[in-house]
């Protein structure tokens, strides 16, 4: 139990490193010619990385049998939301200077902003309902609700893809990771559906042979 607590603390601190690194570089004037662009790109990148990590926990847990991994899913998910919030704040503050009108026009008009904004908004209910109490209260509906992460992560990757001018290599890596993570779930769901039928067939066969 103590070991898990310590590990959780370590992961928590590690997840803050990207932010600390940005802060330190900004303080040292090491963010280059266009610091705001660097901050925007970095917080966006880390949002996607934490979304992928969060989606990776269940497959990893099932494939390895290391079920304690589930204990980290809320934290990585909340860090995805944390970096998404920073990314969004950078946009409304340093790009739009809190000009709400400008921002709404942007969201309506530019499809890469529309999907990016959608990705962010979909994360809000997930963050809000991430507490123990909410999980209990929502019961089965909690799991349904939290499937929104599939849409949010997809929208996030599309946002990145639509933003780049020509070199889509990096968005492609995210798309590949996302395809694998969601693909695994599809396969797992299909096998689960097939499993009871297979069992039934087996028992029928057994009955027929009189065993």
């Amino acid at each position: 139990m103590l070991k898990l607590k310590l590990l959780k603390l370590a992961v928590f601190l590690a997840a803050l490193i990207p932010l600390a690194r940005l802060g330190w570089k900004a303080y040292q004037h090491m963010l280059g010619a266009n610091p705001i662009e660097v901050i925007t790109h970095s917080t966006g990148d880390w949002t996607l990385i934490f979304l992928m990590l969060t989606l990776g926990i269940t497959p990893l847990r099932k494939l390895t049998g290391q079920h304690w991994l589930i204990r980290f899913r809320r934290m990585t998910g909340l860090f995805a939301f944390f970096y998404a919030s920073l990314h969004f704040t950078t946009y409304i503050f340093l790009d739009k200077f809190f000009d709400v009108n400008e921002m709404l026009k942007d969201i309506a008009k530019r499809k890469f902003i529309t999907v990016g904004f959608t990705a962010f908004v979909l994360l809000i209910p997930l963050a809000v309902t991430s507490t123990q109490g909410m999980i209990r209260r929502l019961g089965k509906r909690w799991q349904m609700l939290h499937r929104l992460i599939y849409i949010s992560a997809t929208a996030g990757v599309v946002h990145y893809w639509w933003l780049v001018k020509a070199d889509v290599r990096k968005p492609q890596y995210y798309a590949l990771a996302l395809t694998l993570l969601l693909g695994y779930r599809l396969l797992a769901a299909q096998r689960k559906k097939a499993a009871p039928a297979r069992l039934a067939a087996q028992s029928r066969a057994q009955a027929a042979t009189g065993a």
């Binding site: 280059g32 010619a33 266009n34 001018k165 020509a166 070199d167």
Partner: peptide, 18 residues
């Protein structure tokens, strides 16, 4: 000078400006 020479869109070398 530092910014003009370290922040370049020159895709023949890299798509990253740094």
């Amino acid at each position: 000078y530092k910014d003009i020479t370290n922040y370049n869109n020159f895709y023949e070398f890299a798509t990253d400006k740094y």
